[in-house]
Design a protein around this nucleic acid. Structure first.
Lengths: 134, 134
DNA sequence: TAAAACCCTACTCATTTGGTAGGGTTTTAT
DNA sequence: ATAAAACCCTACCAAATGAGTAGGGTTTTA
């Protein structure tokens, strides 16, 4: 399951995608419109900025905006930033791989199956972008 | 991510699948062979029994065994019993559906996307069975 | 009839989730 | 130049979940 944090992130990003190239958007505006706790949203946006999804402008007339065109930011990227691994097992994760003890990957049936699930999932999440959310 | 509980469940079920029709298997045997905390495993097996995946026999010579042929028990079923929902959002879950507030399902882009992910995932997990794990 | 095996309740400890509170620091339009 | 607007940072907290432990029943059946 995606965390609430991730759901908030997508709600905010959708809003930013809708306002792409219309100048920075205030946190407070997004928080209010999308009913997201303001301080919580602040954290999320900071993280997305640190990870190069967003940019921000300070001062009066400032706010957050997408770094690139919505069609350039993949859903999978956002999930990985906010929630971490997408795979169902650490031992099949591409970005958060961890060896699993007590199971030989070469001959573990579950491993193979979860790899298939991962591939099917990524086929969707690594192709679709913020543009598909608006 | 699958919980450790689910991973343990699959390890135990794999063992039971390998010993299908060879009589009941002791909890203690599975715990030892698969390195699963015994009491924790006990809970898992009880749950799987209550949900009609397993049957058990008490007394000397007793133990647990699969209720049906390994090819009859779907991976998705086991995950739902042990971990709950497979979907990434409650509002696209088939067995654990929950309406999401603040988002209209008809026009929520995330909803549609996660539905596609769900379908792709279930296409695998609802076809494969314990037999595929051995 | 007692050893073997299943069943049940309750507790615990660590981590994660979903936030709050509050106070900076920087910017920039006026 | 300055104050209002906006971003940034640290710390805390409560509830839920995950991952078990402990310990004592109860039921079978060889």
């Amino acid at each position: 399951m995606l965390s609430k944090k991730a759901q908030y992130a997508f709600r905010a990003l959708t809003h930013l995608a809708e306002n792409y190239n219309k100048g920075p958007v205030l946190i407070s505006e997004m928080a209010k419109k999308k009913r997201i706790p303001l301080k919580f949203l602040e954290n999320i946006l900071l993280e997305l900025k640190k990870e190069d999804i967003l940019e921000s402008k300070k001062g009066r007339g400032g706010g957050y905006y997408l770094k690139e065109h919505p069609s350039k930011t993949y859903i999978a990227t956002v999930i990985r930033i906010v929630d971490g691994p997408i795979s169902l097992l650490p031992c099949v994760s591409l970005y958060f791989y961890q060896r699993c003890k007590n199971c030989n990957e070469k001959q573990c049936g579950l491993h193979d199956m979860m790899k298939d699930v991962r591939d099917a999932t990524l086929k969707i999440l690594e192709r679709r972008t913020l543009k598909d959310l608006v």
